[in-house]
Design a protein around this nucleic acid. Structure first.
Lengths: 234, 234
DNA sequence: CGATTGCTTGATACCTCTCAACCCAGGTGG
DNA sequence: CCACCTGGGTTGAGAGGTATCAAGCAATCG
């Protein structure tokens, strides 16, 4: 069921990051950079496709911000099934945890570039800088909000509904043209929506027959009838 | 499908609350109460069963903390279906939103007592008091964490799995004895798990036949075989 | 006592999963 | 150049599980 067996252990290319926090959007705009902020311990990291960023159970020592590429957060059930909780794209911050360890693992969908911040340092900075606190809070609320929306999708009954909602979500990243560039495989989509790869494939084919979309390329979806898709998404 | 048509408009019994924030757990322990904290604008509110606390789309002006009773956060789809996102019990804080309005509605499952905090005031206090910021962050992380767990449940395939997970979650509230007191109806459970009321009922009956649980009362579930239930929950 | 509400049970239809075959593009090596 | 292999995707047939529709049951309340 769940593919993605070869999640190799993380040993990415590290590189010190002396950028101020605002360069990666964790410091409020307009505030003068403090000494701590200027030499903030953000570390730029590169991950090749399918490399694991952190594992379920690892100590949750970092927050990550996506600079480029796509990341998936996923959980593996003990029978091998996989549930993808979220995809993170440029600008998203992930790695928030209530406890001391990650409760989910993160992997690179495409090869990608991240900036990692030590959690303790971020928290310490937030103690001194209320603006940073606000930024953190806002980033968390965005992540929270998306997870809640995802839960609503998973609760939906039909496959068509789920796929339509998925397309609607990614239509936002298509820069106005209705051409959605998929970074992930069908298996990723299936595990994200709680469906099987076959059902995803069949549903897309059906959408194509119904002239709702076109599939010029295996990783491209042209939205032809947004209204009908949105109606399906209800 | 979705019951709960009669969500009456909110007009609960208001009562000024001059309690310090720590009395309701939003101020860090040990810190001396400041002047603002002492007269914090928390308002105790009572809601009778099934009364709406706030509606989807209302301005998100308050955070709520549950003093007693159970609250459900739910979303109504335009075809009448209902998805319950979470149940909140004593001690839980809810009402977090990334935007200016609520994206979900909240209703009293049982008659319940809440403390409402004006969002702006909480945020203003948090600006002066980093400890409060930390508390807020922690409360949010807990809520976030539970929503993520719920998404994983909804992604699950079988009805038995979902119901077992639901029971496992509420077993924690049963004070050690395996006797789970259900505050909600079967319909609530169904809408929470993304199932129908009939399937929930059948699954519980099957569990009873398999000696996993006993149903002494319609609102009580005695867990007889926690190991087997946990195995089902995987 | 009848009406209502919440729940259970039954029969059937529908949808998705499962298993299997097939297709297609890309890469490799003879 | 072509045969072969591989990975990702599509398509098909059948089984299984859940939704749907309908009826029945028990407790509660006028």
């Amino acid at each position: 069921m769940a593919a993605q067996l070869a999640a190799s252990p993380p040993s990415p290319q590290f590189q010190l990051c002396a950028l101020p926090l605002d360069a990666v959007g964790l410091r409020p705009q307009g505030e003068p950079a403090r000494e701590e902020g200027l030499h903030a311990p953000g570390t730029v990291q590169h991950f090749v496709q399918d490399r694991q960023i952190y594992a379920d159970g690892d100590p949750a020592n970092h927050l990550y911000k996506v600079v480029s590429g796509v990341v998936r957060a996923c959980k593996f059930l003990n029978d091998g099934r996989r549930q993808i909780e979220a995809f993170y794209v440029e600008g998203d911050v992930f790695g928030f945890e209530a406890g001391a360890t990650y409760t989910i693992c993160a992997e690179a969908v495409t090869s990608c570039t991240l900036v990692a911040f030590r959690r303790k340092v971020v928290e310490a900075l937030a103690q001194k800088d209320n603006g940073l606190s606000a930024q953190l809070l806002a980033a968390m609320l965005r992540a929270f909000s998306r997870t809640r929306a995802h839960a609503l999708v998973l609760g939906r009954r039909g496959a068509a509904e789920k796929v339509a909602l998925f397309l609607a979500e990614w239509a936002g990243h298509s820069a106005g043209t209705g051409l959605v560039q998929l970074a992930m495989t069908r298996q990723d989509i299936a595990d994200f929506l709680g469906l099987t790869i076959e059902t995803v494939s069949r549903t897309l084919t059906q959408f194509e027959r119904d002239r709702l979309i076109a599939l010029p390329n295996i990783r491209q979806i042209q939205l032809c009838n947004r209204a009908a898709l949105n109606a399906l998404a209800a």
